[in-house]
Amino acid sequence: MKNFKTGLVAAAVLALAAGSASAQSSVQVQGLLDVYAGSIRMAGDGASTSTLGSGGMTTSWWGVKGSEDLGAGLKANFALTSFLQVNSGLPGRFPGDTFFARDANVGLSGSFGSLALGRNLAPNFLPTIIFNPFGDSFTFSPLVLHANVPLFNGTNWGATTPSDTGWSNELLYTTPNYNGLSANVHYQLANSSSSAHNVGINALYFNGPFAATAFYERDQLNNPVVSQFSTKDVKKDWMVGASYDFKVVKLFGTYGKAESDDAALPSAKTLSLGASAPLGAGSLMAAWAKTKLSTGEDRKTASFGYDYFLSKQTDLYAALMRDEITGASSGTSFGVGIRKRF
C-alpha cells in the first residue's frame, strides 16, 4: 500500500512538472495554400499549357513550428515544414523533393542571436524574395525564375542559383539585429568522406522606407538531396539589392553574378527592376529581369500583376508575364489565383 501511495505521489509530481513545462512551450500548426488557374508558356516552349497549378505567388506548404522558454532569455526552437502541391495533393515541389524540404531544424536563440542545425534556408533566398515586388513567386517573379527555375524545353537555360533555396546538413547562425542590420552565416556539410561543402553569408538592412541587402555563396554540393556537383567544380553566386518605399510607389532593384571554375559553364549577370503601388485593398506589381550569359545569349522577363486582400489571411491575385530568350520563341503566361494562410 505504501509503495502504491508513493507511486501516486511520484506520478502527481511528474504530471505537475509536465504541465509546468508545457506552459512554457508553444507549438503551432502553420501553412499556406496557393492555387491558380491559367496558361503557361515560357520562352522556348512549343505551345501554351492550360494549367491549374499550385504556388502561383507562394509555394504551398504546411507544418509545425515551436519554441520552449528555457529562462534567462534563452529559447529552444524547432521547425518541421513541408512543401505540397495543392492541385494534386502530392508532397514536395517536384518529384524526388525531400518531404521536409522547407524546414527540418532545431536550435537555440537568445541575446547572442540564434543557431539552428538541420535543413534551412540558403543564403540566396531571403535577399531574392524580399527585394522584388512578386516576393517568392516561382511562377511569375522574373528575378526568382531567372535565379531558381531551369527550363527543360531545349533552350538549355539553367538557374543561376548554384544549389537550391534551402540547404540540408546546415549550421545557420543569425546575428542579433543591430539598428536594422542583421546577417546570416550558412555552412553545409557533405556528411561523407568528401571535403566538399557549401558556405555563404547574407546581410539585410531595414531603416524606415529604405532597405538593402547582399549575399554571397560558394557551393560544391547539390540540394535538396546532397551530393557533390558531377563536374566537381566550385560555383559562386552573389547579389546586391535595395528598395525604397515612397508610399505612393515602392521601387526595387538588384544586380548579381553567378559563375563557375569550370570553363565550360558560362557566367551569368542578372539585373532586375521592380515597383509596387497600393491600390484599394491590394497592390499593383511590375517587375523585369535580364540575365546575360558570357556566351552572348540573354533572357528578358517582364511581369505585371494585382494582389487583392480579402483579409490578412486570404488574398486573390492575377498576373501576366512575357518571357524572351535569344534565338528562341517567346512565351506569354497568365494566371489568377487565391492564397490562404493558416
Results as ranks from 00 to 15, higher is better:
260 S>L: 01
250 K>Q: 06
233 D>R: 12
246 F>E: 12
271 L>Y: 13
241 G>N: 10
235 K>C: 01
267 S>I: 00
245 D>G: 04
232 K>T: 13
264 A>K: 12
263 A>H: 12
252 F>R: 02
231 T>L: 14
253 G>I: 00
266 P>C: 09
267 S>Q: 06
255 Y>L: 13
236 K>M: 10
249 V>Q: 01
278 P>A: 06
269 K>M: 07
277 A>Y: 03
260 S>Y: 02
276 S>I: 00
253 G>V: 01
254 T>P: 06
256 G>Y: 06
281 A>T: 07
243 S>V: 00
272 S>P: 06
267 S>P: 00
264 A>R: 07
229 F>D: 00
282 G>C: 10
239 M>R: 14
264 A>C: 04
269 K>E: 15
269 K>Q: 12
248 V>R: 06
228 Q>A: 15
239 M>H: 03
286 A>T: 08
267 S>F: 01
236 K>I: 03
250 K>E: 04
233 D>H: 09
246 F>H: 02
242 A>T: 12
245 D>M: 03
251 L>Y: 09
256 G>L: 06
248 V>Q: 07
237 D>I: 03
264 A>T: 14
276 S>D: 13
230 S>R: 11
228 Q>C: 01
233 D>I: 07
281 A>K: 13
277 A>S: 15
259 E>N: 11
259 E>L: 02
261 D>T: 03
238 W>F: 15
233 D>Y: 07
248 V>L: 10
265 L>Q: 12
253 G>K: 02
247 K>C: 01
251 L>A: 15
277 A>W: 00
268 A>K: 15
253 G>T: 02
285 M>W: 01
235 K>A: 15
272 S>D: 11
256 G>I: 02
281 A>L: 13
288 W>D: 08
242 A>I: 07
238 W>I: 05
257 K>Q: 15
256 G>A: 06
284 L>R: 08
265 L>A: 13
275 A>S: 02
274 G>L: 03
239 M>G: 03
245 D>R: 02
275 A>N: 03
237 D>P: 07
272 S>W: 10
285 M>V: 10
265 L>D: 11
274 G>R: 03
251 L>R: 02
263 A>R: 12
262 D>K: 13
282 G>T: 08
240 V>D: 11
264 A>L: 12
257 K>T: 14
259 E>Q: 11
259 E>V: 00
262 D>Q: 14
272 S>Y: 05
263 A>K: 15
247 K>A: 10
288 W>H: 12
253 G>W: 04
